[in-house]
Amino acid sequence: MVGKNVNYSFETMHLEASQNTTPPRVKMEAKGVDVYYGDKQALEKVDLPVPLNRVTALIGPSGCGKSTFLKCLNRMNDTVVGCRVTGSITLDEEDIHSPTVDVVQLRARVGMVFQKPNPFPKSIYDNIAYGPRIHGMTRDRTELDQIVEESLARAGLWNEVKDRLQEPGTSLSGGQQQRLCIARAIAVNPEVVLMDEPCSALDPIATARIEELIDELCNKYTIIIVTHSMQQAARVSHYTGFFHMGELVEYDHTEAIFTNPQQERTKGYVTGRFG
């Protein structure tokens, strides 16, 4: 086998995995994406379709470009000085770099949760209400209250914080803060949620809580998660892409990646021989 399979499609994956379910629709798709930081190339020719309402995990050793790829999907790389992205990335078959797409609108549709919990220096309530307010999603206070409650409830945080909504978001524990950030991200009703190692700063119990949450959320949202932990990828995701040295080495069903990888490098990484 030479090189990598350039055209990943869910139909062929399904044939190979011989599953009976219908293949998922493509929500986002990257085609031939190159990313440069200054002169240094960080990603090379990445082709990756993202399935609708599934969890896609991106794994690989540090510095392999998986976080860079994630940030391309909601154009957070725009804020990085000297960063250049080429190739096409589509959301619902519309190129996110096309001039008709407003980056602000894009980010409202493609939300993001960061590696370290980053609540705003505001109250718990205002943290959640921030997005709905700036996007003018509500007409009155009652609607806003409702969104805040729903978002917190979906992030599994409502019962813990319902009596202390006016306390600062930073007063919560690390795991609660991360769930607050997830609630904040889903409060604007995004279609896709990007998660950049959301559990790497958390203890195992908080991690388990977030993983459960991801499982529940994927009914409603398309989720892409970057993770260092292969166990986590295996636990939460339906599809997994393995990045190495700036390329997408292999992309397949999570089960296939972990039990029957086609590429030597993937095999080496998932069996722990390097990484």
Binding site: V104, R107, F114, N118, F120, Y130, G131, I134, H135, V188
Partner: peptide, 26 residues
Amino acid sequence: PQAIRDGSLAMGATEAETIRQVVLPA
């Protein structure tokens, strides 16, 4: 911290909203 700026931008806030509502209060 850049992290809370990114957090705000990633919500689809404009730079002006980020500065007014997140950066300046902080």
